[in-house]
């Protein structure tokens, strides 16, 4: 293996950004969809954890990692539907339901996931995009999972959909004003339920990525709050799918900083390096916010920004 010296740090950040960002990307894209329709689903952390368990279990039982991804997406749809349907009832608080569903998803995943901690399920395949480089570290950093590429494609597709298609328009109208949507003859609740279900599916896939690719095992600690953090990143990304890509990459890359700095010998105060993603996000957030446009880009019906 080549000794990269200090170059190891940027290479590690690149690799880390690609490896770690995918779950953030999927969850935040799902949440963008849901929030653009005017609802907040804070429960995607639970969906992600359940998706991780369900995906791993199905992949192990069926022998196919892709079957696991599908199962995780389906589980996500069910959790999304549950949230969407409950929140369609009058006077029900979507944030509170989200928190309760976070608990439910996590609880059910832990409850039924016990037998799958030990077995080894098939992993999702990766594409070797680093074949051109003779440096093993670069090759490793550019070993990219298909889901990462799918996530980027999804972000591009969603950005286009929201801007230029009828579906996007409907979603935006529903998210900005229930009354306007009704006046257009739309059924806001049905559309919100659909958007929440789709968002749930994304979060389920994010969970499957965790358990089936990176770190690639199911355990109760598999998520360290990625789902919750990703929901928060949506505000950071100002409800824009393309911004979600940057936010996820920034967050993932910053997360790789801690181990990378230790590996080149900077190890004192390592907890502070590990806080880098949070500090960096907060810093960018403070720098880009302004008191006059606290909710710029926010859908009008969103309870969190009203």
């Amino acid at each position: 293996m080549t000794d990269l010296g200090l170059w190891a740090v940027p290479v590690a950040i690149l690799g880390g950004a690609i490896r770690v960002s995918t779950p953030f990307l999927f969850v935040s894209l799902g949440e963008v969809l849901t929030e653009r329709a005017g609802r907040i689903n804070l429960g995607l952390e639970g969906t992600l954890v359940f998706g991780a368990m369900a995906g791993y279990a199905v992949a192990y039982e069926s022998g196919s990692a892709w079957a696991g991804v599908l199962a995780a997406a389906l589980a996500g749809v069910i959790f999304g539907l549950l949230h969407g349907l409950i929140c369609s009832l009058p006077k029900v608080n979507d944030i509170a339901i989200g928190i309760a569903l976070m608990l439910l998803g996590t609880g059910l995943a832990f409850f039924f996931g016990t037998p799958y901690v030990q077995p080894v399920a098939p992993r999702l395949p990766a594409i070797d995009l680093g074949f051109w480089s003779g440096i093993p570290q670069v090759q490793a950093a550019l070993t990219v999972n298909v889901l990462f590429l799918a996530g980027i494609a999804l972000a591009l597709g969603m950005a286009w959909m929201l801007r230029a298609t009828r579906v996007g328009l409907i979603l935006r109208v529903v998210g900005d004003s229930t009354d306007a949507a009704r006046a257009m003859g739309l059924r806001p609740n049905a559309i919100r339920i659909g958007a929440t279900a789709a968002g749930g599916a994304f979060a389920g896939v994010a969970g499957a990525y965790l358990s089936l690719f990176y770190p690639g095992a199911w355990s109760q600690g598999v998520s360290s709050g990625q789902g919750l953090m990703a929901v928060a990143l949506v505000i950071f990304a100002r409800w824009n799918p393309l911004n979600c890509v940057w936010a996820a990459l920034l967050f993932g890359g910053a997360g790789a900083l801690g181990p990378a700095l230790q590996s080149v010998g900077l190890s004192e105060g390592y907890y502070l390096y590990y806080a880098a993603p949070y500090v960096l996000t907060l810093g960018v957030l403070i720098a880009t916010s302004s008191p006059n446009r606290a909710t710029a880009g926010a859908p009008g019906e969103l309870s969190i920004t009203k």
Binding site: L233, I235, L285, N292, I304
Partner: peptide, 9 residues
């Protein structure tokens, strides 16, 4: 003072 969303902050 900065309009930073309190939930994420």
């Amino acid at each position: 003072y900065r309009g930073v969303n309190e939930t994420i902050a």
